[in-house]
């Protein structure tokens, strides 16, 4: 038996540009999922400052909110959450076997709505924050 050649990871990266809607949707969903579960752990950690008393809680939260970076990250988090929700609805439809032919269009629509909501939320999220 002759040995055979395994092309390994290189071909996987080579294929990225050939990905289609369904694949991109999966990658985005997975990425946003990782962000959200990561955030959940951080979120509970930050809120745990309540255990040190009301003042510590208020100070921690308002201290963080005063930072421009935090506000920026919050807009990002909103975009991530909105996309995960919208694409999640899309995936639930796929699971129910509804509109499988429109799965690519619904992905593009999810992206569009996510973008629109993220942009529209910038004024609200950036109120009263210096650089």
């Amino acid at each position: 038996m002759s040995q055979s050649y395994n092309r390994g990871l290189i071909e996987d990266f080579g294929r990225w540009k050939e990905f289609s809607a369904g694949m991109w949707a999966w990658i985005f969903h997975k990425f946003t999922g990782w962000v959200l579960i990561g955030y959940l752990f951080t979120h509970i950690a930050v809120l745990s400052s309540a255990l040190a008393g009301p003042e510590a809680y208020t100070e921690t939260l308002q201290g963080l909110e005063a930072l421009f970076v935090v506000r920026l990250l919050e807009v990002g988090l909103l975009a991530v959450a909105v996309f995960h929700i919208l694409n999640g609805i899309r995936l639930l439809m796929v699971d129910l076997g509804i509109g499988l032919d429109a799965q690519d269009k619904s992905f593009y629509l999810s992206l569009l709505i996510t973008g629109a909501i993220a942009v529209a939320s910038v004024p609200t999220f950036m109120t009263d924050v210096g650089f």
Partner: peptide
């Protein structure tokens, strides 16, 4: 984020 603003959160409100 929209009804109550995140930067205005105080312990009293949370409670």
């Amino acid at each position: 984020h929209f009804v109550n603003h995140a930067w205005e959160i105080e312990f009293a409100g949370t409670q």
